[in-house]
Amino acid sequence: MDIELSKLLNELNNIYTKSDISKYCLDNGHKWSYSLVTSTLEKNGPLVIGFNWGASKGEEYEPQTEIKKANFLTEDVGSLSRIYPFCRKHFGDDFISKITQSNYCFFRSHNESQISSKDIELQGRIIHC
């Protein structure tokens, strides 16, 4: 699985350079980039999907270049942290520690509205590679 994900990261880099959000970042002095996936990548483990990776005001983000395994409980998962109480109540911390996170859109933005329909279409190509 790691080899396939690494190939997707390479393709994602090519697609990001053609995106509207990439142009927006260049024009407005932002460095937000993209990510593909984080967390445990545990086979048959739970997968949580958000809309897109966030970008905090004044923060810079490097593009994801490798897949690193980490624990969902100890990562900065942004707004997805709101699911912790529900997951704990219904599934327990062991479930949370096995979560892999990705997003419908791989490009970062400060607001969802900054992601254009072209961006969604472009990054959708990576899924169908």
Rank of each mutant, 00 (worst) to 15 (best):
K98D: 01
Y24K: 06
M1C: 13
D2T: 11
S113W: 03
F51S: 00
E59R: 15
C129V: 08
S35C: 13
L73T: 06
C105P: 01
H128M: 05
D27L: 14
C87A: 10
N10H: 15
K18E: 10
E4W: 08
D76K: 09
R108H: 04
S116D: 01
L5K: 03
I3P: 06
L12A: 15
F86Y: 07
I127H: 06
G78L: 04
D2R: 11
K7H: 06
S117V: 04
F95M: 01
D20P: 06
S113R: 09
F95D: 00
W53E: 06
L122W: 10
L9Y: 00
I96F: 10
S117R: 13
K18P: 05
P85M: 14
I3V: 09
G92M: 11
N14V: 10
L8Y: 02
Q123R: 12
G50Y: 03
L73E: 10
T100V: 13
N111M: 10
G45E: 02
T65F: 13
M1A: 13
N103E: 04
H128N: 06
Y34N: 04
Q64N: 10
L12W: 00
I99G: 01
K23T: 05
K68C: 08
S109F: 12
I120T: 03
G92D: 09
E66H: 14
D27T: 03
D20K: 05
L26D: 08
K118D: 02
